[in-house]
Design a binder for these strands. Structure first.
Length: 482
RNA sequence: GGCGCGGUAGCCAAGUGGUAAGGCCGAGGACUGCAAAUCCUUUAUCGUCGGUUCGAUUCCGACCCGCGCCUCCA
């Protein structure tokens, strides 16, 4: 049964199907590489990755393309401030983005086009739009899209039902393009921006003079070149991109090419932090490294970010991460019992985590059903823990245990969860603490419990916790993992 | 003002016209010299008020509250 997914355009649940024998054409608006991505960005990318994985396990191949925005106001400004060329500046942040994605177990897209590498395609697209009367150049050397020339403008976000009145400020409180009085209409958006002094050396030659492409244009151009002129099956992004970005993409692409840009729109809701929108001023904007520094693993973050369903705003807190970490540990225990039964080692689990041969019926059927029903990751995890809670391992023989591992592994693949990955870095234990701990251990070994307990108490007062096992002990900071 | 999404246990969060998954935390118990870990048990009537219905948390209406977008944003 094909995966069902809510489509923003038709506002309905629809099956996600590619043309026969074709990979599903899936395009995602990628990051602007001017700094480290924050966890809100990653929620969207993680959800897209999860959807792709679900489709693959379901037997639907996907051609996944996600662009890099490596030219815009922020990248140019960042490069100038850093005293780097735009290319060097964006390269370092692209590498950081890739490293973070890898840590979060995101499959790399099959194609990752960059805006800078598609300047000629963007210029050609503009020329085409001008020729067709959908765009116009101004005396100053900018080019705008003529919104009034596209009858269906606004269909994705129901713009006709909105009051499209000019505003003097946008929601960030900034003036709206004060210098763009030259536009025919306020709703017209820029395709080509004339060169400005603050752009430095970051400009390209064009038929309209030196300048650079507008943001919306790059996606239209890259989609066209990555998918060789075919209509997309699926296009994804955060809800905020719905308008104007995706609306403008539709206008540009459909006017230029005379065919639908995309059949199905996938928008994920925003991540909130501590009940509020993330922002630097509130101090609640986290990057992956911020959370690592607090001792959380990337996998815990992945779990936390996919634990809520994608159409719902997810409220992220540090407590959420604790919960994720504990939940992951529980899955690892479950895996261990199954591996034992199957006569295999922890390291053998990897072989089971794959998209092929899902065998997702039986025990994990309801988890799988949830994923196929509008990517309900939350319900899927619930169903998974239903199985974990009634741990079937003890009653299985070796071959049954292996089958269960296959099904479990396919589910882990779909969710993008890997187990037994990295150990959370433990803080270094100071020598004096180490010495006290050793002293306590020796006291315990000689059954001097009074002394052992007293030393335990001393260590606890100093903020360190002793955890014994049969023949060894560990010392950990007793600060609740944060 | 326009468009959209929500309000479910201490926290996070699914879901259904017939009295509500799951995770975390907490509590109790088992185990342990004591702890830790682990295991078992345990914690809700679903924002408010009406309506429809044999029956609503689930459908309809009104209201209250929170959040997002309205050309910066994943």
């Amino acid at each position: 049964m094909p995966v069902q997914l809510y489509d923003t355009h038709s506002r309905s649940l629809r099956p996600l199907e590619a043309e026969t024998e074709q990979a599903l054409r899936f395009y995602c608006c990628g990051p602007t590489v001017y700094g480290p991505a924050h966890i809100g960005n990653f929620r969207t990318f993680l959800l897209q990755d999860t959807l792709r994985r679900v489709l693959e396990v379901d037997g639907q191949p996907v051609h996944h393309v996600r662009n890099l925005t490596d030219v815009d106001d922020k990248t140019i400004k960042g490069a100038m401030q850093a005293g780097l060329t735009l290319q060097d500046f964006t390269r370092q942040w692209t590498e950081k983005f890739h490293a973070d994605c890898t840590a979060l177990n995101c499959l790399p897209p099959h194609d990752e086009p960059s805006a800078v590498e598609h300047i000629p395609q963007q210029i050609a697209l503009i020329e085409q739009l001008i020729e067709q009367g959908h765009a116009y150049a101004t005396d100053e050397g900018s080019v705008y899209f003529r919104v009034s020339s596209f009858e269906n403008y606004g269909s994705l976000s129901r713009l006709k039902e909105r009051e499209l009145k000019p505003q003097s400020k946008n929601s960030a409180g900034q003036r709206n393009d004060a210098d763009e009085y030259e536009r025919e209409a306020v709703s017209d958006f820029v395709l080509w921006k004339q060169r400005k002094p603050e752009d430095g050396e970051n400009f390209w030659k064009s038929p309209w003079g030196e300048g650079r492409p507008g943001w919306h244009l790059e996606c239209s151009a890259m989609i066209e070149s990555s998918f060789k002129g075919a209509t997309l099956d699926l296009h994804g992004g955060g809800v905020d991109l719905c308008f104007p970005h995706h609306e403008n993409e539709i206008a540009q692409s459909e006017c230029a090419h005379g065919r639908p840009l995309c059949k199905h729109w996938f928008h994920s809701a925003h991540l909130m932090v501590d009940g509020a929108k993330m922002s630097k001023s509130l101090g609640n904007l986290y990057t992956l490294d911020d959370l690592r520094a607090k001792g959380f693993s990337p996998m815990a973050l992945r779990y936390a970010l996919i634990a809520g369903s994608y159409r719902q705003q997810l409220n992220f807190t540090i407590e959420t991460l604790h919960a994720a970490q504990s939940a992951l540990a529980k899955l690892e225990r479950f895996a261990t019992t199954l591996l034992d039964k199957a006569g295999q080692k922890t390291s053998d689990l990897k072989a089971y985590i794959q998209a092929s041969d899902p065998k997702l019926t039986g025990r994990f059927a309801s988890a799988w059903e949830a994923l196929g029903n509008n990517l309900n990751t939350s319900a899927a995890l619930g169903a998974l823990f239903g199985v974990v809670g009634s741990n079937p391992a003890p009653s299985l023989n070796e071959s049954e245990a292996r089958d269960t591992l296959s099904a479990f592994g396919a589910l882990l693949y779909a969710l993008g969860l890997s187990l037994f990955t990295e150990q959370v870095a433990k803080a270094n234990t100071p020598d004096d603490i180490q010495a006290l701990a050793q002293e306590r251990w020796e006291a315990k070994q000689s059954k001097d419990y009074a002394r052992a307990d007293s030393l335990r108490k001393t260590l606890l007062q100093k903020g360190w916790l002793i955890k014994d096992s049969v023949d060894s002990y560990q010392v950990e900071p007793n600060d609740g993992q944060t």
